[in-house]
Amino acid sequence: MDYAIRAEGLVRRFGATTALAGVDLAVPTGTVFGLLGPNGAGKTTAVRVLATLLRADEGRATVGGYDVVRDAHQVRQLIGLTGQYASVDETLTGTENLLLIGRLLGLSRADSRARAGQLLTDFQLTDAGDRAAKTYSGGMRRRLDLAASLVGRPQVLFLDEPTTGLDPRSRNELWDIVRSLVADGVTVLLTTQYLEEADQLAGEIAVVDHGRVIAQGTPEELKAKTGGQSLAVRPADVVDLPTVVSIVGAVAGVAPEVAQNTVTVPVNDQRVMPAVVRRLDEAGIVVAELALRGSSLDEVFLSLTGHRAEDDPAAANLEGSVA
């Protein structure tokens, strides 16, 4: 297979902190690869190494077949970078930001202007093109960030937490843009702490925690890996909820969770579901929904790392002090 990004044994330390503790990655060309992990897991450090901004203490990496240290200049001609730490100039207008990048990439004045105009149109920023970027909303700002990294038509795009802090609508817009880029053949390395985002966009996901890849696979493989399925039962009548809870709990042998009138319980035994159906029938309870579900990525993450994503304040502080 043809890999746009390869990394072997990347190690990077900041003083006593080990941000990367031996990371291997292989991203096939033309795919979206998700690096999923909480704050401080080492995702941004990995992106900075791959984008030639930071040297790894150990290990090596190539982008488009070029070594990120020895052939850094070639790598920079292939990549685009958008993220928490790579940003546009807030004092310039949207147009000026794109012109600046175009000119730096060696486009003529006219070509830079044409490219800037086209990107502003594509990203629905035409009306805001002559306003300083600091007046932009969060969603517009991210779109401009992304547009700026696309001026040179990169083959490999690094998106470092592209939707952190965005409202759902802006997030969906950004996702659509990423999907259309991939349809055009761009390889995307996406870091995110949102499991849903990785699930939505990435063909393959590496779960990162404390500087290591602790699991890797397609979203489905990851969900299957932790084995768990869950049984969800929603009674047609809310008054039956306590009875359903006791029946499901008794059959599964575990106390079920209740949310939005739905009773959920993890199941490992295939006989649980028919038994629950039989008992509900005997009790005369009509159910509106009864389903056996694969576990969500959230549950996968919890079972892999022992903690939920997005709630690791100690690690977040660590990353803050490193950056």
Partner: peptide, 9 residues
């Protein structure tokens, strides 16, 4: 973060 964007060019 502007400096990082420039350095990645």
């Amino acid at each position: 973060g502007v400096f990082d964007r420039l350095r990645a060019l």
